[in-house]
Design a protein around this nucleic acid. Sequence first.
DNA 1: TATCCAAGGTAAGTT
DNA 2: AACTTACCTTGGATA
Length: 304
Amino acid sequence: METGAIPLADVDGEFDLQATVESGQSYLWDRADGGMYDELNVHGGEEWYETVVPPLSGVTDERAVVRVRQTDGLLEWESTTDAVPILTHLLRLDDDLDAILEATPDDPLLERAYAAYPGMRLVRDPPFACLVSFICSAQMRVSRIHGMQLALAREFGDVVEMDGQAYHAFPTPEQLAARTEAELRELKLGYRAPYVQRTAEMVADGEAHPDEALGMAYEDARESLTRFVGVGDKVADCVLLFSLGYLEAVPLDTWIRTAIADYYPDCEQGGYATTSRAIREAFGGDYAGYTQTYVFHYLRAGRE
DNA sequence: TATCCAAGGTAAGTT
DNA sequence: AACTTACCTTGGATA
């Protein structure tokens, strides 16, 4: 096991581990004390969070176990390999958060949302796991989406050991494609079960891969992702924003649609694409996805 | 304790 | 292209 610490003084802008990992963007981390989504802002990120990272091109050649916690000014980590490039990638420590805030429009709601969780960053989840996570997110509560991903890893993923402890990797496309719809329904995926199975099959067979969207113009990339079963415009936007680095993507979920109705009625157009373009401008254009995630977390976790 | 309802939507069928 | 409807499951609200 390797250990280390990233001084947060080296990061451009603030960082809040708990807000980043428990804000409903990533469902691939688990809190070691089992208290995910409880008592937000009580532990402040000091608990250990852990995940198993698949090989990521340009980041890590092999699968790695990563544990991390935030303690005054440091991001402490334990891993099977050097976790600095991995954490920098997954938690977007390379973003200049101050510059992003600077580029955000002056607007009462947006200022309240950004002020509520200073240091919250977007994530860069591994693409396939992100795709599955958000297929599972349809009409689901945040805590249950998380539970589904843990169950998929526990039942169908490889066991990886570090320091005598067993961790469960998220299943590969092949591992999920090999399961039946009934097996996935046993994990309480409900009507999402065939979506996950068929999408995994598409990736395993080489018919399509979420990475293929990379490099495409934003709206073409969104359209491309909707080829997967169970993926409409909203889920496609989530994958673009939380995995593929399209920071202009604004997933139109129930909370954002409510915010549009309450605060930006002029942005309420007919279809998804038109409304999306309008709210993207109101949320700051190139970094609109950052704003979306702050507003989502502020409205949902604040319950008002 | 029983019932009801909505949860980070999508696919398939109509008009 | 816009509008309906069905869809699994369950934690929390309401009676």
